[in-house]
Amino acid sequence: MHFIRGWESHFAGWFSSRLFSLLALPALLCGCGGQGESIRIDGSSTVYPVSEAAAEAYRVEHPEIRISVSQSGTSAGFSKFVKGETDISDASRPIKDSEVEEARANGIEVVGFVVAQDGLAVVANPENDWCDSLTVEQLKTIWRPEAKGTVSTWQDVNPDWPDVPLKLYGPGTASGTFEYFTQVINGEKKASRPDYTPSENDNMLVRGVSNEKGGLGYFGYAYYAENKEKLKLLGVDAGEGDGPVKPDEASVKDGSYKPLARPIFIYVSKKSLARPAVSEFVNFYVENAEKFAVQKLYVSPSQDELASNAELLKSEATAHLEPTAAN
């Protein structure tokens, strides 16, 4: 439910700051305590499966730590994270400067780790025998806002292709995947042709493309991997002379599948990291991120990202040992 993002924080902020600050009394009566052993995670629904896998695996060794994972969306998750309401924020995009500022204003420093890479698959119907790959230029021809009404058949994309109606499926306009795709392909965030079938549930996109001969859609690679017989995976040609590349574990990991592969993150508040329970869990999560990513059909972070993770862990994981860091 990504539609909560954006105006959610505006209204919530208004209610909390102006109207009802007097009502904080019950919190004084029954506040405090209960904090000790719990770790709160919220944010992107794309990252959710990885965090869930990490929380579950950690529970085997540490059943006393109460970890909860929510998925209210990257932006909604950050809006809670910067107020100190959550310890870890799942994100399918890097944190924005404005969000870092807001966190700092609340006395929260953040540290981010790449936990996986998500390749966006461009897929067509299995009956489509004319197209094996698309260039970034062609994708732009299909998906840019001006394409509305002018690009309506496959022939409009390439004159050699048949006159089959082009039926487009993609994520809803509030999702991080949509934001990423439009930015990379159309050159502007959220600039997309409006006449496609959107759904927040990627399984609906799978169904749509697999039922339409002229279907074309994009979504996370995991949804292709689970529906290989119903879909045809298309290669993407970045136009840099390397030819079309199809996404798979190797091509996403080594970066040759571009530009539709992106890192996904967790952000941790340093304040929370000062608590041994959190820092131990984050250590465990980040060190085993490759395993959790692969388990949930994502691709593990690149070598560079893994190296930077390790370095960050080394410098941050000891934070709780310094008495000054404790809060």
Binding site: M1, Y48, R66, V69, S70, K80
Partner: peptide, 24 residues
């Protein structure tokens, strides 16, 4: 589901709530 998602109710919790004011 929608209002609870908005207030941040969890999807993964491997514990039962022990009190009604602290636990997710």
């Amino acid at each position: 589901a929608a209002p609870l998602l908005a207030i941040g109710a969890a999807t993964y919790t491997a514990f039962l709530p022990q009190d009604i004011v602290h636990d997710d």
